[in-house]
Amino acid sequence: MSELRILVCVKRVPAPGARITLTADRQSIDSKNLGFATSPHEECAVEGAIQLVEAHGGSATVLTLGAVEADEQLRYAVSVGVNAAVHVTHAGLTDGTDFDAQATARALTSAITSLEAAGGAFDLILFGNESADAGGFQVGVRVARSLGRAIVNGIKHIEISDGIVTARRESADGFEVYQLPLPAVLGVKEGLNLPRYPTLPGRLKSKKVEVLVVEADRANGGLTTLSFDNAAEVVVQTTMLGKGPEAAPAIVDLLEELGLL
């Protein structure tokens, strides 16, 4: 078949470790001492796009809606092999804040529509199953519906042949198979693949790549975030069963006590 045009939508999110610290006004995660990352499902979407282009030819484009700092995630995607990058941005977006799901979907749909008008339709658009921070489980579905394209979420395996994408979704005891005609949209999950690391030439290319910057309109939807709270901390009295292999009998006693032997 002819060459593929693939688009991947990624989000820059803070990467908190053992516990999440909030800002004093409880309006966002305190990211002063945190790194930022691409949402894990979307990292796999980027890798999936690169692998499909390697197999079928064509090009992969990465797109994000985010604050100026999200440029870092776009360039990272280029450093591992994506061909082009689009940064949809808005003056009101700061690091760690976001549009609501409806506003995000509208901004992405409008950006995608312009990109397609200029360069032709994307055969496949990849989203994450859910963003790591907001976890709305909906932006990909909203965009696909606006574009009138088929979408299935939860995908952990993708194959394309003869204008059809065959996708697998994990089930309790194995997987379900879906077949969608192209152009199509998929929401993928981590486990789709193991994302590669940047190469030196990739890093150089990512520094030089021209990122297309697009101003977004903000059309808020009906769900408004008011503030954040930490989930209740678990407070337990830890019972120490011992140190080293000498603790084995105590562990087996516990297994017995819980009726698990």
Partner: peptide, 29 residues
């Protein structure tokens, strides 16, 4: 963190502890 949040804990190298646990289970059985 896991040690602080767990109901039970054993401090040590898992590579020494786990074989000892399996051995103890086999011995008791």
């Amino acid at each position: 963190n896991m040690v602080g949040k767990a109901e039970y804990a054993v401090i040590g190298d898992l590579h020494q502890i786990l074989p000892a646990v399996s051995e103890e289970i086999r011995r008791r059985r």
